[in-house]
Amino acid sequence: MPNLIRILFISAALFSQAAHAAEALPASDDPALERRVTAIAEELRCLVCQNQTIAESHAPLAIDLKNQIRDQVKGGASEAEVKDYMVKRYGDFVLYRPPLKGITLLLWFGPFTLLLAGFAFLFIYLRQRRKTQQEEAPLDDEQRARARQILDSGAKPE
C-alpha cells in the first residue's frame, strides 16, 4: 500500500513538471534566439513577484519585459545593453547579481568580513586558552601528597 502511494506521488510530481514545461512555450521559432532571451531573462528580477526571475515569472509585466528583451536581442542588442535598459527603468534591483559599488560594498564583502572576524576570534581564543593552561603552576609536593590521599581514599569506597 505505501508503494502505491509513493507511485502516485511520483507520478503527480512528474505530471506537474510536464505541465509546467508546457506553459513556458517559446514565443519564437528560433531556438538560438530563445536561448539568449532566456539566458538574459534569468539574470533579471521580476518586480511583481520579487523572488522570481523574469524568465520564470508569468506575471503580465514579466511577459512584456521578456518580449522587450526578445525585440532588443533581435535588433542586435548585447546582453549588457539589455541589462542597461532594464537598470535605467527599474534600478540595480532588477539585477540578480548586484554591481560592485559604494552602496553594495557591505553586501559583497560583509559575509567575508564576518568570516574573517570569526577566524580572528577563534585564533585569539585558542591562543589565550593555551596560555592559561601553560601558566597553571605544577603541583608542589605537599599538594601532590594531598591529591594522592584523596584519590586513594576515593578508590576504596566503604
Binding site: 518586480l47 511583481v48 509585466l61 512584456d64 519585459l65 522587450q68 527603468r89 527599474y90 534600478g91
Partner: peptide
C-alpha cells in the same frame, strides 16, 4: 509604462 519603470 515600461519606459517609466512602472511595475505595480
Amino acid at each position: 509604462g515600461i519606459d517609466y519603470g512602472v511595475y505595480g
